[in-house]
């Protein structure tokens, strides 16, 4: 499969912070990718580097095979919906929509109009006076209607209520189904976006923790719960990602796949086995990375 984005040993360091650190990662064409990480993990910085808004400290970036920096050919095929995008004073949603429409060759005005209606976005109100959710709606409308070959959504649904979020997912899936393209969605609300994603990339502290197809993740982690003594006996034979103890009860998240022996042992020890949700796995992976960092 063609790689739309490739980075190698990419770093963006500020005085005290390594926002992105030695990151080598790639993203396939025409899939919906999830970029997951805690707040401050480096998701936004990575997206800003990929869209040429920031200059890398070191390392290499290829987008559509070229450097995105000052590259019109690449940028014309890209649409970046930023979290907390600022707009000039006095701007109204219709101004933003009109500018975006002029910038994207594949812009679909009819889709844009539908979405404006769907989100009930007031087109002639000052952007400063809009709610957080309406601000997010502007980004979502531009991101979907632009129909760019590569679209970044950075935490796209902040401030949206449950109905508006469902509207977003419906609109995104419908448009993606009709016009497949590469989409990167960053999020820290994981389980809700998980079904939309085809791949999951977790970064933490500016570094890559894991990258998987969602289907592979089905067997990536399991949770076992039972009495503390039983869990103690069980954990000798498996790789534990995270453990929580409450009184005499314990839960462990374990890296999959689970061997038949381990499964039988768990059943003999009367442990409850369940597939870990993406959120559980994410917490477990980032927590164990944090602990490893603290030890080092």
């Amino acid at each position: 499969m063609t790689q739309v984005i490739e980075t190698s040993a990419l770093s963006k360091h500020y005085k005290a912070v390594k926002a992105v650190n030695d990151l080598t990662v790639s993203f396939d064409e025409n899939r919906i990718h999830g970029l997951l990480g805690r707040n401050g993990a480096g998701k936004t910085t990575l997206m800003q580097l990929l869209t040429g808004q920031l200059f890398a400290t070191s390392g290499d970036i290829r987008v559509f095979g070229e450097s995105p920096l000052e590259n019109t050919t690449v940028m014309q095929r890209t649409c970046f919906i930023q979290e907390g995008q600022t707009y000039p004073d006095g701007f109204e949603p219709r101004h933003v929509i009109s500018i975006a429409a002029g910038m994207h060759e594949k812009w679909d005005q009819q889709r844009a109009d539908e979405l404006v209606e769907m989100f009930e976005l007031p087109m002639k109100r000052k952007i400063k006076k809009l709610s957080r959710g309406q601000l997010s709606a502007i980004g979502i409308i531009v991101g979907i209607a632009s129909r760019a070959d590569l679209t970044f959504f950075d935490e796209p649904y902040l401030g949206l209520d449950a109905v508006a979020r469902k509207n977003f997912y419906d609109a995104l899936l419908a448009d993606y189904a009709a016009h497949p393209r590469t989409i990167l969605i960053s999020s820290h609300h994981i389980d809700e976006v998980a079904p939309l994603l085809e791949t999951v990339t977790v970064i933490d502290n500016g570094e890559l923790l894991m990258q998987h197809d969602v289907d592979e993740l089905a067997d990536a982690a399991f949770a076992f719960a039972g009495t503390r003594a039983a869990v103690d006996q069980f954990t000798g034979s498996v790789q534990v990602l995270e453990r929580t103890d409450i009184g005499g009860l314990s839960t462990v998240v374990v890296r999959g796949p689970i061997t038949q022996d381990a499964a039988r042992l768990a059943s003999d020890l009367r442990l409850d086995k369940s597939r870990a949700s993406l959120q559980d796995l994410f917490v477990a992976v980032t927590e164990s990375a944090r602990k490893a960092r603290q030890k080092a």
Binding site: T72, M75, M103
Partner: peptide
């Protein structure tokens, strides 16, 4: 002033290059 502050970050965010 606006050209190099509010408008600049807005334009870069839309995918306009610095030179453009």
């Amino acid at each position: 002033a606006m050209t190099m502050t509010q408008y600049l970050s807005f334009a870069l965010g839309l995918g306009i290059t610095r030179r453009e």
